[in-house]
Design a protein around this nucleic acid. Structure first.
Lengths: 221, 221
DNA sequence: ACCTGAACACCGTTCAAGT
DNA sequence: ACCTGAACACCGTTCAAGT
């Protein structure tokens, strides 16, 4: 009779590190990087931290707050502006932000309704405002414009995110393309005329164009 | 002994109307209008239609498709453009769309990742393209610009939606405001300078300004 | 083809009771 | 104060079996 295999018990495992907000966020970040934000649930996180879901509520008010913390963590990897003209630097910065969020479309969606307020986000916002100021944009247009630019970048990442869920979205994209193709020029003359341009360009080209257009618009409005 | 009250049984109720996609969407629309999109779940809808959730999958592929149908339904209430100049009409149309979606922020969030392709949405898109064309905007800028304008309108509704969930968001808005107030002018000089303008203006003023800025930008980019 | 019961595999959050 | 087991009140989607 071979010795019965007993399941690894609590006391055989390495001592459970004490819970902390930072530890929680670190684990959440790892799960998000490896499997996407969908997998970062309170229950999963609790399991990974060897406790019950209720324990997490000592450190965050709710999932939205956790998502805000994750955004702030990602923002740490964003480089500050370089030394070119304010316009180019601004576009580069916002494009880098868009690219970063593009890898985490679910986070982008969450951020869109979040009003983030972490230190890294404030730094980022300050930099955008600074570049607009450097371009001579009056303070009101700079404030409203920075908001507009960040909203656009976030919404773009949320919309065209590139994780597995994008497979579904690709189906809908195809459905829209088909609907546009089949739209009769009689009832939809403008759609028919714009048919080819509606889906033209790469994501990068369109995003850069949009950022440029918004910057041009806000300086003259 | 008073007659025992028996619960209303299946056969005492009016004959169950046959399921149909239109019937489903109509009930979903009613629930969304009365209680918000959060309450429009497959299970709730099935209960309301006196069937099991599995039955709904005969008519829609998934919840995303249902949300697309709801948007198309709402779009039916949107008036076409009037007779003023293309610019004013375009802003009016997009503002009406924003206002409409503002009442259903969860739907706006869903639409942002949906690529809607319903007939009413195509009509709406065609109208936006038509107004830009009337303004002499070249077809490529019109196509990319229409996309940009619709994305902005949808994202704005998603962001500042006005249902009960807005109570939570108000808390986060307040937290951001507090963070901005407390941001030291030394480490966040641009935030400090823009402090007052960051939260100035009504939602309508800011949305109209943003739409105007984007239109100005896209015509010159 | 259309319809469904039941199951699969999960959720976020709260709360009373512990330490 | 910090932590937790257990419960509350739900989810979307699939699938085999019916009609």
């Amino acid at each position: 009779m071979s010795p019965r295999r007993v399941p690894v018990s609590r006391r055989d495992r390495p001592a459970k590190p004490p819970l902390s907000r930072d530890g929680m966020v670190a684990v959440a970040l790892r799960i998000m990087r490896e499997e996407g934000l969908e997998r970062v649930t309170m229950r999963r996180l609790a399991g990974e931290l060897d406790t019950g879901p209720a324990s997490l509520y000592v450190y965050v008010r709710n999932t939205a707050e956790l998502h805000g913390a994750l955004l702030d963590e990602l923002l740490a990897d964003l480089d500050g502006p370089g030394t070119r003209g304010w316009r180019d630097e601004l576009i580069e910065l916002l494009w880098a932000y868009t690219r970063m969020l593009h890898g985490y479309p679910s986070l982008a969606r969450s951020v869109l309704t979040l009003r983030p307020s972490g230190p890294r986000y404030l730094r980022f916002f300050d930099t955008v405002l600074g570049l607009l100021h450097a371009g001579g944009v009056p303070v009101r247009q700079a404030a409203w414009g920075a908001d507009l630019l960040l909203q656009h970048a976030t919404a773009t990442a949320a919309e065209h995110g590139s994780r597995d869920e994008a497979v579904e979205t690709a189906g809908e994209e195809e459905e829209l393309a088909a609907a546009v193709r089949e739209a009769s020029p009689d009832s939809y003359p403008n759609l028919a005329r714009a048919r080819d341009e509606l889906f033209s360009g790469t994501g990068e080209q369109r995003t850069r164009w949009a950022l440029t257009a918004i910057i041009n618009g806000l300086t003259t409005t």
